[in-house]
Design a protein around this nucleic acid. Structure first.
Lengths: 252, 252
DNA sequence: CAGTCAGATTGGCATATACCAATATGGTCC
DNA sequence: GGACCATATTGGTATATGCCAATCTGACTG
């Protein structure tokens, strides 16, 4: 496979078209390379030994191990001392019960606002298509917002809607609430399914959330449906695990 | 303050009274030392620079930084490049809605069972006393169980009950379910409050859950009350973040 | 064939070192 | 006093190296 060519880590700043593209740390590029490699393996299969992998990828074992550590922390790999690193099986799912959501948080006198990071209307790739239950390539509305509480970034939220809604961004900007805006567009949510899991911050996420790359995050995915069971929204929210704790109350 | 004396990392095995006590890695001892030190500081206060701290604690900067990284990942510290490491403010709390729990999981043909790690009746320390809303020093029932699915350890669960219940352990051992057992003891749960947050595996937790020290975990704390509002149970469950994903469904 | 043991293999821990990047500091100039 | 800049300080990334500990392998032994 040959050694990788890494992007320069030096002071060269490649000013790219959209946004502040900083060069990613080497261990992260190694991680991406590993992910690509793992994608072509079956669960249970082993990776080459670390010392060999390191030279193969043109990096030190220390750096390689940092990448491996994150993949292990994410549940992509599992490693056994004396044996090797193996591709991990997919996650288990523990089904819980009812949960009702509210978009707000500003109960106790907290300053809450959102910053719109990105807003576009891309065509759905395979992954997004299945989550929204639409055809691949169909246009979708995407809205990336940074949730801020007390001037502290708390969550990075990407909402995807199956139907392009012109003027959505402006409406959300003024009202602040996506759900209130959807309501005024005549879209009514009546069914919700969401999941909670841990994730580790990518360099980009880390920059926005102001946490170090690799910090554990709480990833909350939400799928909302209308009365007819059609998916009207799919949202992935990455909450800072070091700043957030979710509490649920209920009566049996 | 002087340098610390570390436990030997060599092959000396100190066979202690209860259980398999392995010597803890050095970076973890450093972490504990830091925690003790941080406990005497106020949020916002800074730690000495890393290079100085390292020599002060008698370790290398690399090892120190691994300890610092975990504390930062846990939200205990926050660090700023070029400035320093600071004691972080306490976590925010996001209040959600209703959640109904079930103790079971064995829906889809999964092998589910528990292994009792520890069971005793200690007297409550300050922390435990406040969580159970009882007097400090009062006797409590404590039950530590390892939850296993498909021969894979999934969660480490510590349940605490405000009233010592003799024979509880045997009853739970046979029935497998804590809630079913409580029911037969005449204890009825009708109100639940729980929280979800991330945590990092300690060496002990890692050993039981078979994950590396520092792996992100989902920490779910649950407080159960009876009809009169009395707390009947306080449980901390550490789920393997790399193996579990919680899903909740609900209708608005 | 089964059991055992020595050695090789492989991941885990810790250190020393070097340099980069963001921040803080203090002096100079206007 | 305020703006600016060079420099020191401090955290962030990456490498090379050594040794420990768990595991695996294969030869040897009964």
């Amino acid at each position: 496979m040959g050694t990788l060519r890494f992007m320069s880590t030096s002071s060269v700043r490649t000013a790219s078209a959209s946004g502040d593209r900083a060069p990613q740390p080497r261990y992260f590029q190694v991680k991406l390379a590993l992910e690509k490699r793992i994608a072509e393996l079956e669960p249970g299969m082993s990776l080459p030994p670390e010392r060999k992998l390191a030279t193969e990828l043109g990096t030190s074992r220390t750096t390689l191990r940092r990448a491996l550590a994150e993949l292990t922390a994410e549940g992509v790999l599992s490693s056994t001392q004396g044996s090797g690193n193996y591709v991990a099986p997919p996650k288990l799912v523990h089904v819980r019960q009812l949960t009702s959501f509210s978009d707000d948080l500003g109960a106790a006198g907290l300053t809450v606002h959102s910053e719109i990071i990105d807003a576009d209307q891309p065509s759905a790739d395979a992954d997004l298509a299945t989550h929204l239950d639409i055809d691949k390539g169909a246009p979708v509305e995407r809205l990336v917002r940074l949730r801020i509480v007390n001037d502290e970034p708390l969550a990075l939220e990407t909402a995807c809607l199956p139907i392009p809604l012109d003027g959505l961004v402006d409406a959300v900007t003024t009202s602040g609430s996506l759900y209130a805006t959807l309501h005024r567009f005549g879209i009514e949510i009546c069914d919700v399914e969401d999941s909670v899991q841990t994730a580790l911050a990518t360099p980009d996420q880390g920059r926005h959330l102001k946490v170090a790359t690799g910090t554990p995050l709480l990833l909350i995915e939400r799928t909302s449906r209308d009365a007819d069971g059609r998916i009207v929204e799919w949202t992935r929210s990455f909450y800072r695990g070091d700043r957030v704790r979710f509490v649920a109350r209920g009566t049996l």
